[in-house]
Design a protein around this nucleic acid. Structure first.
Lengths: 341, 341
DNA sequence: TTGAAAGCGCTAACAA
DNA sequence: TTGTTAGCGCTTTCAA
């Protein structure tokens, strides 16, 4: 039976209904300490009959333990963070810990607010995307006294530990592969980057690699907002109108790359002969496209997995030592749009 | 300065550092009650200097108020729920409330666990996808004594209130439009549906509409897992091999529809002359495809918005009356793949 | 405008 | 194996 009035049920209600002390009821409900089968039975029955749901707020305050892991990411709407979340969830499912996500929309101020908000719930750990944070945010993370893992990127210094790839290196590798394949008139398309540090670092690594080969980017364009697939299509069309002699297009993510690819196929352009293409991320989506876009896996699943493992390990044994820096190595898949050499 | 030891800071620390009573510190930090500008200043300074982050666990227990809204959805990895989330977040951002999401993977047992878990934090409201829940889940929702909004679907009876579309009607409307356009050899592709009630209802409505026109589905296939785009491609190829005389393909979501469309274009099949296509959802992604797939908007943003408004209204004034059933009406967009008649 | 006391619902620690 | 007592860190309530 549901309770008749609106007052939420408490342990005391279950205690009274079952004739067992609050403390013992608490023990039964948490499977802690020795309780006789008979008492246990009585308690469980009463709790179920009443429809009692424990109050974790009170429990957490009393025990000084909150089995929550704050996960702070820029966005849920592209494909990358859901996959990181999958990795995190899989690991945490085998523990007492639960992820709670906060979204920052790539805004530093919002990141700060979200972090403050989440820390005020006293989570057991924090997983946060990126290593660029405001001074205040870094201070909060440091002062929190809980395990902190910064993810996605390893080009910089972590507050505590970090798991990710070097985006600068990723950009460089792709640049080298493109040069090696013999392309030389290269266009770049990507998001407006002031706040997307990882995209910026890839771009920097990329131009650096080209420069080493004595080549400069021949054209570039940046977008923000809208359907990425459509943007890729539009930008590609515009860029080829503007700079018709390009022989390679490097996209800062797979979605715009896919849009570009669909456009080029429609135009009957030979890929990768006349124009080569590459994106970044290795999204599953690509598998259904007419050609497999060349791309680079960002190791999203492993990043989530590894980060969660670090937190879980540290929560279980705070004095255990863990790797402070875990750099994963993305690999290029050439697909059908980048000549192999 | 960050605290030197590991003990988290408390109000008392701020009180001592500022020479102001805990109570007044609390008032300053929450902007409640009258506090002189001088005291206020002192407190804020001390709190900032210490790097104090309030403990919401304790605050929530004392005030019996938790400004969290539990949002329980089946998945984050398709496009539909992130957009619902966007609607919810936008509305809640103007209030004290914060969404906290739980994911069920379309599993009733997991839904039950997640719900129990979230309710144990005593949120101010619940937004939960679907109207099919286990008996236990419904009981918990009822007993919780907080506002509950079931979203996405209105074909059934809500625990409290619901906001969504009629998927049965959506399927029917699409069936009617297809018949009206003159198609008659119709194939269906979709997810395995035992647990995706909304897909099942669309399918039922669809076959019902066809039956009224004296037509039966000529072929059908169901999938689970994998890249939806790739699956759409594969299933379409297989189905057309098996049943070459089909003149229409109805997909239970846009992603597989897009995969099918890409395949048909490659095969040089005339769309929508030789074969017509339709999907479901109106995902933004479609905008970049070679043709605009016929689809039906599922009103995801409005669903999120409306649901959050109901919760926010009820939290502000628990005795305010709200619509218990909000049925939104999806509209067909014919795109380039369904003849208009 | 400020402060003191009481207690939110639970669990740690100890006692029986 | 079970129960009792004393808080967890804050806010409510009431008094000054």
């Amino acid at each position: 039976m549901a309770n008749e009035d609106t007052r939420p049920l408490t342990l005391r209600d279950v205690s009274e209904a079952s004739g067992v002390s609050e403390m013992t009821v608490s023990r039964v409900l948490r499977n802690r300490g020795d309780v006789s089968a008979a008492t246990r039975e009585k308690v469980l029955e009463a709790a179920k009959a009443l429809g009692y749901v424990p109050n974790k707020i009170a429990g957490a305050l009393a025990s000084q333990r909150v089995n929550l892991v704050a996960v702070i990411i820029p966005s849920l709407s592209n494909m990358v963070f859901p996959e990181v979340m999958t990795g995190i969830s899989r690991v945490l499912e085998d523990t007492e810990l639960q992820p709670v996500v906060g979204v920052t929309d790539y805004l530093p101020e919002k990141e700060e607010r979200v972090l403050y908000e989440m820390l005020s719930w006293r989570p057991s750990g924090v997983i946060i995307a990126g290593i660029e944070h405001s001074e205040a945010a870094r201070a909060m993370l440091k002062a929190s006294g809980i395990p902190v893992v910064e993810i996605m990127d390893v080009d910089g210094t972590p507050v505590d530990s970090m798991v990710g790839i070097s985006h600068r290196r990723a950009g460089r590798e792709m640049g080298k592969a493109i040069l090696k394949a013999g392309y030389s008139r290269i266009g770049f398309m990507g998001t407006k980057m002031p706040l997307d540090h990882r995209a910026r670092k890839r771009f920097e690594g990329f131009t650096e690699a080209l420069a080493k080969g004595g080549i400069e980017i021949a054209d570039q364009e940046f977008y923000s907002g809208g359907s990425a697939l459509a943007k890729g299509r539009e930008m590609t069309e515009a860029m080829l109108k503007r700079t018709p002699d390009l022989d390679f297009l490097y996209y800062s993510n797979d979605m715009i790359g896919a849009g570009g690819m669909l456009y080029l196929i429609e135009q009957g352009i030979d890929i990768p002969g006349q124009i080569g293409l590459a994106g970044f991320n290795g999204v599953e989506l690509l598998q259904g496209l007419p050609r497999r876009l060349a791309t680079m896996d960002a190791c999203r699943l492993e990043i989530g997995t590894k980060a969660a493992q670090i937190i879980a390990g540290l929560v279980e044994d705070p004095k255990s030592t863990v790797e402070k820096i875990v750099e994963l190595t993305p690999t290029i898949s050439y697909g059908d749009t980048l000549k192999r050499r």
